[in-house]
């Protein structure tokens, strides 16, 4: 039996440096889609292992900024083309709801195909169905990419141009897909404009109401009362 290094007398994998743990996990191919199930299991071992497993180097992230969680066919086509171009499984997809005023509590779900989905949304209701739908699309992407099939033709011209643009920043680990008509800046502007219109409208209605009431009171109460008073006084 080896007596061990001087540095560490009691042998335990818990005390291994994080970079060695990282190498071990890479050897076990836990960073791949196929290793997802294993990864989930091992993340539940202890904190150190969890931290080593989720080192950012493992992940290629896609951030979807959209005001709508509903997975459309265009959305799936887009993901599919991204996956094909990246030449790898999109392991982590972060979906961010762009609507302002919502909380940012992430909800993490692992799907059957091994995708880690992080959904940022204040309200959790309805998440599950949407998550499943998204997961189903991603699974489709995965199957097609892994089988080496070419992605299907994209019918949506707007999405086509969007994904052409994305290619430029795909060298980085993180890239962002933004549906043009649902950009948060535009959403913010539309909401601010709506609020301004509502406030101005209320003010106008209030002023108009006050004016009408004033005219009614002056026309039908004050003037008749004054005339009646003048008539009575003149008769006396």
């Amino acid at each position: 039996m080896l007596s061990g290094t001087k540095v560490q007398d009691s042998a335990s994998l818990e005390t291994l440096p994080e970079d060695i743990l990282h190498l071990i996990f890479r050897s076990a191919e836990l960073h791949t889609a196929a290793g997802t199930k294993e990864r989930c299991r091992l993340a539940a071992v202890c904190r150190r292992w969890k931290a080593a497993l989720y080192r950012p180097e493992y992940w290629r992230e896609i951030e979807l900024n959209t005001g709508d969680f509903k997975a459309s066919s265009a959305f799936a086509e887009g993901l599919l083309s991204c996956a094909a171009r990246a030449g790898q499984w999109l392991q982590r997809v972060r979906v961010v709801q762009a609507l302002p005023g919502r909380g940012c509590t992430p909800k993490v779900v692992y799907g059957d195909s091994g995708t880690r989905l992080e959904m940022y949304r204040g309200a959790q209701s309805g998440f599950s169905a949407e998550g499943k739908e998204l997961e189903a699309w991603l699974k489709l992407c995965h199957e097609r990419v892994m089988c080496g099939n070419t992605p299907p033709s994209r019918k949506d011209a707007a999405w086509q141009s969007e994904f052409d643009r994305i290619e430029e920043v795909m060298c980085g680990k993180r890239f962002r897909i933004q549906k043009p008509r649902l950009q948060p800046e535009i959403m913010n502007f539309v909401l601010a404009f709506g609020q301004w219109v509502a406030a101005t409208g209320s003010a106008i209605v209030f002023i108009a109401g006050c004016t009408i009431w004033a005219r009614l009171i002056i026309g039908w109460v004050i003037w008749p009362s004054l005339l009646a008073a003048a008539f009575i006084v003149s008769n006396i």
Binding site: M1, L2, S3, G4, T5, V7, Q8, A11, S12, L13, L16, P17, D19, I20
Partner: peptide, 11 residues
């Protein structure tokens, strides 16, 4: 145990 010491030494 040996494996642990070996990996530390290799590192």
């Amino acid at each position: 145990d040996e494996l642990y010491h070996l990996v530390m030494a290799a590192h």
